[in-house]
Design a protein around this nucleic acid. Sequence first.
DNA 1: CGAGTATTTGACGAAGCTCAATACCTGTGG
DNA 2: CCACAGGTATTGAGCTTCGTCAAATACTCG
Lengths: 246, 246
Amino acid sequence: MVPSTDPGKHLIAKLLNYGPLSGKEQSLLVGVISSEREVPPDTELVLEDTSPDHSTLMLTGFAARYNLKHDGLRQITSLHLPGDFVDLHSLLMRPMDHSIVALTTCRLASVPHEALKRLVTQSPHLASVLWLNTLVDGGIHRRWSFCLGSFQSHQHLAHLLCELYLRLKQINRTDENSFHVPLTQAVLGECMAITPVHANRAVQRLRASGLISWERDLITIKDWAGLVSLAEFTPSYLRMSDTAHH
Amino acid sequence: MVPSTDPGKHLIAKLLNYGPLSGKEQSLLVGVISSEREVPPDTELVLEDTSPDHSTLMLTGFAARYNLKHDGLRQITSLHLPGDFVDLHSLLMRPMDHSIVALTTCRLASVPHEALKRLVTQSPHLASVLWLNTLVDGGIHRRWSFCLGSFQSHQHLAHLLCELYLRLKQINRTDENSFHVPLTQAVLGECMAITPVHANRAVQRLRASGLISWERDLITIKDWAGLVSLAEFTPSYLRMSDTAHH
DNA sequence: CGAGTATTTGACGAAGCTCAATACCTGTGG
DNA sequence: CCACAGGTATTGAGCTTCGTCAAATACTCG
């Protein structure tokens, strides 16, 4: 397997949104990234109740945190894109209180906890940047709770698409107003706590409203302002300093 | 106003669950707690889009984080009890992406961000403990998302009661199997994203099942195992080392 | 007692679920 | 090139949970 030219690229880009990082800090951080590997869809990356000794960084693909209900229903509590740590919190908070699964083929890297601990002890600034990274995570969780509680399915889907568009734009995975979301409607339903059938109806409602088009896994936003308005979307919770809001 | 005998008491007790703290670390932390005050119910403690220069610690009472939908609906995304920082994250993540309100009369203390920053720079261990505190917060958010998405109202309420019982027990605010929750059913409904009418039906369903009794603001758990089972409650996400599980 | 708030109850409507069937899409082997 | 298989998307009909609206009861404090 050929290693990525720059495994820390997306991570650094994201962290730079949160504040400046010296060249030294960047190289310290990139220096602890190792064990690059690729996994097929549906690979369980981290299981509930385990205590990993490393954190996993996404290089390519989509992954999700989830919890299972006793009847087998899977509730996805967050989606992860390239540049995201799927389990940075496992550094301090063990064992895991949820599982993590690759939703597509994913290229991953590992960061040993031991190396991370050395890093945050030696550099209070890097520590605060990583802390902030987990805080933004928490902010996204709050927003998902808000959406789960407050929105009807089509509004919720609109919000999810707004969030995904900006997060993908941040890592250069958008093209104009289009982006690829290689997830089934069933998986999106698991994010929004609705059935595949109803997720489909939400998709069709957004299509019919003229706000988006959606063919295969390619989503095109035809009316960003309209989508934002429908979703009551306010991007500040994503902490992107430079988001081009069209 | 008479100051508390020990404003940091509940906070320290909670943090000790996460790991040992030296006497010096404890006194450093307690040392930055100041500006004790009391506010009446419905006081807005922190407003969305503002950037506080201090974090607020709960000494007594109940408070909540919330977001507003455009139609005025208030979605509560977390509840805060004595010993909780309601906005520790505001240290690094500004401006606020949600508001915070006192649900009852609350006694509060402030911790200047400047002092906190000095603390976490000087003591990597205190930094990691405070980081972990925010991570547990995030874990609670994930669990609330899970409950919002997966449970029917009575199960969700059962889960909320399990969580409140343990969190109150941790700060010695329980008596045997009873505890006071001075919140209206309408407010509990805002936590679970259901209407007051439906929240009431959930309460009655739990009463009818014989799992709890509930008079005024006094809730008594008559069958902990049954409540836990109904709620599919697993307390690990609260990170209480010493929780007596009955 | 009386006003204001909180809880409770009932009848009906709406959002989303279940079940079942159908269409579509992609890759595979013949 | 076609037929097929498996997964994904789509559609429809009936059902459940929860919302809406309205009214009645109970509790709290002055």
